[in-house]
Simulated scan of single mutants.
Amino acid sequence: MSKIIALSGTKNGVISIRKINEPYGPGSGTVASVGISLSGESENPEWKVHIPLDNLDEVIKALSELK
């Protein structure tokens, strides 16, 4: 699963969201990867965060509360 979203306030920036299995090698847990690229290179973001799927519901709730 992959999703690319235009980054508000930039000309070319994107937010890339991906599900990555075993990101740190065999046996490591699946994560949701959120990347930010000001240049629009979704495959090579300047910033990224990996959120373990076990934490995803709580993170989504916290982000929703920011709205």
Results as ranks from 00 to 15, higher is better:
Leu66Trp: 10
Val49His: 00
Asn55Gln: 05
Pro52Ser: 00
Lys3His: 14
Ile4Ala: 02
Ser39Asp: 09
Val34Leu: 10
Lys11Met: 15
Thr30Gly: 10
Asn21Ala: 13
Glu22Asn: 03
Gly9Val: 05
Asn12Thr: 14
Lys19Leu: 13
Pro26Trp: 04
Glu46Ala: 11
Met1Trp: 00
Leu63Ile: 12
Glu46Leu: 11
Pro52Glu: 02
Ile20Asp: 15
Pro45Cys: 09
Gly25Ala: 03
Tyr24Pro: 02
Ile15Asp: 06
Ile60Thr: 02
Leu53Cys: 10
Met1Phe: 05
Val14Lys: 05
Asn55His: 01
Arg18Met: 07
Val49Ala: 06
Ser42Gly: 08
Glu58His: 00
Gly40Ala: 08
Ala32Tyr: 04
Ser42Tyr: 06
Gly9Glu: 08
Asn12Leu: 13
Met1Arg: 11
Asp57Val: 14
Pro45Val: 07
Gly35Phe: 01
Ser37Gly: 08
Ala32Gln: 02
Leu38Lys: 13
Ile60Arg: 04
Met1Leu: 06
Leu63Val: 07
Glu41Gln: 12
Lys3Glu: 11
Thr30Pro: 15
His50Phe: 02
Arg18Ser: 15
Ser8Thr: 13
Ser16Cys: 12
Val34Trp: 03
Asn55Val: 03
Lys48Cys: 15
Ser2Val: 12
His50Lys: 06
Lys11Arg: 15
Val31Phe: 01
Leu66Ala: 15
Val31Thr: 06
Leu38Asp: 08
Ile15Val: 15
Ser8Glu: 09
Ile60Ala: 12
Thr10Cys: 04
Lys48Leu: 13
